[in-house]
Design a protein around this nucleic acid. Structure first.
Lengths: 202, 202
DNA sequence: ACCAGTATTGAACTGGGAGTTCAACAGTGT
DNA sequence: ACACTGTTGAACTCCCAGTTCAATACTGGT
């Protein structure tokens, strides 16, 4: 019922879904997993608690719909074609999501609950892949296949640690340094004269 | 009263503290933050709920005591003196804590709650620093000062991502590869004449 | 052995909030 | 106008974290 695509949908239902999922996303990012209750979501969205229960019987239903929306709406800056430039931009974008977008708390909440819930485990994977797909695409286009996964883990992991655990702001020089270090351990893909001399290029 | 060090302590109090904090740590690692309630902790430790409340009035008091204990008890393998070997061992140790020790869930739970609680923020920092202090010491002894922080963030971050988000087992070749990549972006400290005595360091 | 001081206990109580239900009401497509 | 479906408000149940306290058990000192 909820998955029918272009089936003529009651406009009331469409409104409700849009409003409630929107309110849930905002709540989830602003206040965290535990703050997402049917009562609070209903209050924020301007609907009755009973309506919210009718559409999303459990808290996880609400959160799943919300995360799906967050992932669907994610956008990435257009690549220029230069590896280093694009990677820096994508990494800055990721760091921005983590801090300003409070994605770090959402990720933490999902990771914590993924231990005893299969569905949450899939949300965790989807969320992480969405947040890093930009970088993955850039890497896949420019470095050897075997380097993509390790480089991605190094980059995203380092930013996560810096921002989330060390509480450090993700400044441009810090991010650029990380990109340089990670690229030093990868093999460029094109036969182009892209030697990895630290001092050369740009 | 609770912080007196060698002051002759009522053995009942000593027993209670040991048992309850032990039970809390186990519960926290096995079942996660939300599972830590006074009732469940009391049940596991074999004490009355009222006793647990008398010693630790809030849930956070319990968790703080538990994390303090976890950090105090943490031990690291003795270094051999060889950078690559020691780093591999320390990283494997960290990965093991994350997976087998369920440290990943604990970290996630702490990160999530650190957003609106200063005390939890300090727990997060302490927990992360405890888990990575072994690697930090090894790096500090062998690479340039400016390389220590970035290398640490890259290593721990990559393992975190691989284990926690990708759900991948932290196999030896995977960890060794990460160490190699990170070391490729660092400058070794002057000569290898740096034969540091394990007992004489800091 | 006794005692004064303290820790522990069991059991009962409260306060709040998550989740549920439903009859009345409102919006929708024909 | 009509049948159908979504929405509503309010009342309700149930569970559980947190609280309290008089009775009991243990401890160190005399």
């Amino acid at each position: 019922m909820t998955s029918e695509a272009a089936e003529a949908l009651d406009p009331r239902v469409a409104r409700t879904r849009r409003d409630v999922v929107g309110a849930t996303s905002a709540l989830l990012l602003e206040e965290g997993w535990d703050a997402v209750t049917h009562a609070e979501v209903a209050r924020r969205a301007g609907y009755s608690k009973a309506t919210v229960y009718a559409h999303w019987p459990t808290r996880l239903d609400l959160i799943r719909a919300s995360i799906d929306q967050i992932c669907d709406e994610a956008d990435h800056p257009a690549p220029t074609g230069d590896l280093r430039t694009d990677l820096r931009a994508a990494l800055a974008d990721f760091a921005d999501d983590l801090t300003r977008g409070h994605l770090d708390r959402l990720l933490a909440g999902v990771v914590e609950r993924a231990h005893d819930n299969e569905v949450v485990g899939r949300l965790r994977t989807r969320l992480y892949e969405t947040g890093t797909s930009g970088m993955r695409a850039i890497l896949a286009a420019h470095v050897e296949e075997r380097d993509v996964d390790p480089a991605l883990a190094l980059l995203t992991g380092a930013v996560l640690v810096r921002v989330t655990f060390e509480g450090r702001p993700a400044t441009t020089p810090l991010l650029d340094d990380l990109v340089d270090r990670v690229l030093a351990s990868t093999t460029p893909r094109t036969s182009q004269a892209r030697r990895l001399d630290p001092a050369a290029t740009e």
